[in-house]
Amino acid sequence: MLSVDSFEIAGRRVWIGVFFSEKIQGITFSLEKGQFKSNINRLTGFLRRRGVSVDTARKQSEYPSLVMEVITGELDNGELLPMMSFEGLTPFERRVYEWLTKNVKRGSVITYGSLAEALKTSPRAIGGAMKRNPYPIVVPCHRVVARDGIGYYTPRLEEKVFLLEIEGVKGWTGSRRT
């Protein structure tokens, strides 16, 4: 099922969509309604290519509100981690997502290189895992930055800046170098 809602956060309208069955299968969000529709389609395709059976029928749930509470800091990312299905992920991706969620808390960042060092892998592998993250916000890929700037973010850098600014991480948001 797909649960969709929008919220006013820090003076911006944020659309949040959550695919779920018994647990959360994927999350997407956007600061623009048109982009949000594209994000839903992109996530649907990604999950299906990974063998996840997703139902696009709409059904209200508490999941978008929970994701919003992570954005606003009312909930810690780790509190939602048990709600993730982890369907369709490789063991490497799951290890990266769990480590990141448990260790890089709100208001802090980690570089691709430091995360790679902690997990004994390469920064390029970390970058690929971040790009494929089906649980943005809960798995805080927005907190992974380049050593010399904010780094890249899928699908739009504006969302990464927004999330970091909400969390009070201002030092990295002035640099939009990718």
Rank of each mutant, 00 (worst) to 15 (best):
T173R: 00
Y63V: 06
F92E: 13
K59V: 03
R94S: 07
G171D: 13
F162Y: 11
T90H: 07
K33W: 11
E87M: 10
G17F: 02
R42Q: 06
E8D: 12
R58G: 08
V109P: 00
V4L: 01
E69Y: 13
S30Q: 02
E22Q: 14
L43P: 05
F86E: 05
V104K: 06
L89S: 10
G168Y: 03
R50G: 03
A118K: 14
M68T: 12
E158N: 10
E79R: 13
I71K: 06
G171F: 08
M84P: 00
L119G: 10
R12L: 04
R94T: 12
G45P: 02
S38Y: 13
P155V: 04
G45W: 06
E62Y: 07
N39C: 10
S21L: 10
E32P: 02
I27F: 04
G26H: 11
P136G: 01
I137L: 03
K23H: 12
R177D: 08
V145W: 01
R106Q: 07
R58C: 10
E62M: 10
E158Y: 03
R132M: 12
E79F: 08
L43A: 09
G88V: 01
G45Y: 04
E62I: 15
L75A: 02
E87G: 11
I27P: 01
E117V: 05
I40F: 04
K59A: 15
E8K: 15
G11Y: 00
G151E: 00
R124T: 15
R177T: 09
P91Q: 02
D55L: 08
E98I: 15
G168W: 02
P136Y: 07
V54G: 08
K120R: 15
G11K: 08
Y153E: 01
V138C: 04
E158M: 09
S6L: 04
G78D: 11
R58E: 14
M84I: 15
L89K: 02
V14M: 03
V54Y: 05
A10E: 14
A125I: 09
T178E: 12
F46C: 05
I24N: 07
K120C: 13
S65G: 13
H142K: 00
L119N: 04
M84A: 13
C141W: 13
L100P: 04
S53T: 11
M68H: 12
F7G: 05
G174R: 14
V96N: 03
S114N: 15
L157F: 08
R94I: 06
S108Y: 05
I110P: 09
P155Y: 04
R106W: 01
G128A: 13
